[in-house]
Amino acid sequence: MRTAKTISITLPPDMLSLAQACAEREHRTMSELFREALRRYMAGDGEWDALLSRTRARGAALGMRNEADVERLSDEFRQARRK
């Protein structure tokens, strides 16, 4: 008994060509390629959200408000590390 269901997706021609080339290069079927892409996409959301939450909280605790603050702290860290 088959446990998988067949679905149909629509891709622009250039994306299809890239996907086919990727599948061929990795010796995968298109189904394997898309299953792996979907697994990574679904698993990544929670991890990314958790990372953003942690880094935003840490940034706020350090008083960082914008990218200039990040750059300044990065420069300070690198200078201290060189000494």
Results as ranks from 00 to 15, higher is better:
G59S: 01
E71K: 08
D69P: 03
E36M: 09
R54C: 14
E26N: 10
L33R: 01
A60Y: 00
S17G: 02
E47K: 15
S53L: 12
M15Q: 04
Y41I: 01
R39H: 13
D49A: 15
D45I: 01
M64W: 04
E47H: 04
R2N: 12
R28K: 15
E32T: 09
R40D: 11
R58N: 10
F77Q: 07
K83H: 05
T6L: 15
S31N: 13
D69T: 02
E67W: 14
R25E: 10
M64T: 02
I9F: 05
D14Q: 02
A80P: 04
C22P: 01
Q79I: 00
A19H: 02
F77N: 15
L62R: 00
D75N: 08
T10E: 10
S74G: 07
K5C: 14
L18E: 00
M64I: 09
L52S: 02
S8I: 10
R56A: 06
E71G: 09
L11C: 09
L73H: 01
K83A: 11
E71P: 09
A68L: 12
L11K: 00
G44C: 13
A21C: 07
A57N: 09
A37T: 05
R65I: 13
A68H: 15
M1Q: 02
A60N: 07
E36D: 09
R58L: 15
Q20N: 05
A61Q: 10
R72Q: 06
R78F: 13
R78N: 07
Q20W: 03
D45P: 06
P12S: 11
A43W: 04
D69S: 00
E47N: 08
R72K: 06
M1E: 05
P13S: 07
R65L: 12
D75K: 05
A68I: 11
A80S: 10
V70Y: 00
R28G: 11
A61E: 05
D14V: 14
R56V: 00
E36P: 05
A37M: 14
R25Y: 10
S31L: 11
M64C: 04
L62G: 00
S8F: 04
R81F: 08
W48L: 13
A43R: 12
A50G: 07
G46V: 13
M1L: 02
I9M: 03
R72C: 00
A43N: 12
L16M: 07
M42Q: 05
D14S: 08
T55N: 14
A80L: 15
I9S: 07
R65W: 06
P12Q: 09
N66G: 10
R82H: 05
R82D: 14
T29Y: 08
L52E: 13
M64A: 10
E26Y: 03
L73G: 01
M1N: 02
G46N: 15
L52Y: 07
S53T: 11
E32M: 08
